[in-house]
């Protein structure tokens, strides 16, 4: 056999697994190309009956010998043997089958299932419980005929899609305050889960028994760690508190307030002015001296240039 032909055959053999049967899923309408792999939702979203859709893509499934089942499972990842529709004694919930795609529809190569309610995931059982946090996987499964007789080949979706029911409030943030000139720098740190932002409130420390009158401060994106509250009065003590907000807008509740007192400080410029410095800042043209020097320099350069 000629060497190029042999090499081509080897390539085909090596490449054949890559051309094998596969199914991929993505959340429709949440970013192109399956960029969104996790769909977190809140208790409110669950109660409102919000829904989602799944888009599927199949390849190499011309030999499919069963319908494709798209389902949600409480198992860790997609099981290799298809959905489990039985409730086990251990309390594992039965998988929820979202849709069955017939072998003839499978030949189209891609499709989309009808919208499904977010709450229809095994761990929820159709309810929206308080304070719970569940993550379930969305999977697809189909059988195919690897040879001309047996229908014993299985394909499980390769995508790692998850539904995340989050009704558990985050933990309030850790906090540190830095009192500065007319401002307080609030340093915040996440405790536990990934957050969306922090919300900050501040108030003048009350003199008597009256409670503090809280004012909304600037919010802080969770990716950042500090935020300044500006425009404060030096010498006055302020209380500051903050709460965490997670990606589905669950709030932690405010942490224990801390106090800080902004104080006047001098930087170099303040110290210079306090020492009697005369400079007023801004640009100075030094009367006519500068234009004169620049002009003289220009003449010098032109003379040198002409001499060449």
């Amino acid at each position: 056999m000629p060497t190029p032909l042999r090499a081509g055959l080897v390539l085909l053999v090596v490449a054949s697994p890559a051309l094998a049967q596969s199914i991929s899923l993505n959340f429709g309408g949440f970013g192109a190309g399956g960029t969104v792999t996790s769909l977190p939702f809140s208790q409110q979203s669950c109660l409102d009956g919000n829904s989602y859709i799944i888009q599927w893509t199949a390849s190499g499934l011309g030999g499919a010998c069963s319908d494709m089942q798209i389902f949600v499972t409480s198992a860790q990842g997609c099981p290799p043997a298809g959905p489990n529709t039985l409730v086990t004694d251990g309390g594992t919930s039965a998988d929820v089958i979202l849709e069955t795609v017939s072998t003839s529809d499978l030949q189209a190569g891609s499709g989309q299932i009808a919208s499904k309610r977010l709450r229809d995931m095994p761990s929820l059982g159709g309810n929206c419980p308080d304070g719970q946090d569940f993550t379930n996987a969305v999977c697809a499964f189909v059988m195919y005929r690897p040879s001309s007789t047996n229908c014993d080949g299985t394909v499980t979706s390769s995508s790692n899609l998850t539904l995340h029911y989050d009704a558990k409030p985050p933990v309030p943030p850790s906090m540190n305050l830095l009192a500065q000139d007319s401002k307080i720098v609030v340093q915040l740190g996440a405790e536990g889960e990934t957050l969306l932002r922090y919300e900050i409130q501040y108030a003048e420390a009350p003199a008597g028994d009256a409670g503090p009158v809280w004012r909304q401060g600037p919010n802080l994106e969770a990716a950042k760690t500090s935020q300044s509250i500006t425009g404060l009065t030096n010498g006055l003590t302020y209380l500051v508190r903050a709460q965490s907000v997670d990606v589905v807008e669950n709030v932690s509740g405010y942490n224990t307030p801390l106090s800080a007192t902004p104080q006047t400080s001098n930087g170099f410029w303040g110290e210079y002015k306090d020492a009697g410095g005369h400079d007023l800042g801004g640009c100075s043209t030094a009367d006519a001296a500068v234009p004169s020097v620049i002009g003289a320099l220009g003449v010098l350069i032109s003379l040198l240039w002409r001499r060449r």
């Binding site: 210079y272 002015k273 020097v293």
Partner: peptide, 29 residues
Amino acid sequence: LLMTPWRVTKGGTTEVVNGLSGSGLKWGY
């Protein structure tokens, strides 16, 4: 001939004292 822009910062921003901004340009040789 020297030109020296200068700036004083406090807390990351240009320091201002009694309305005077701590920045400017100085000339010299």
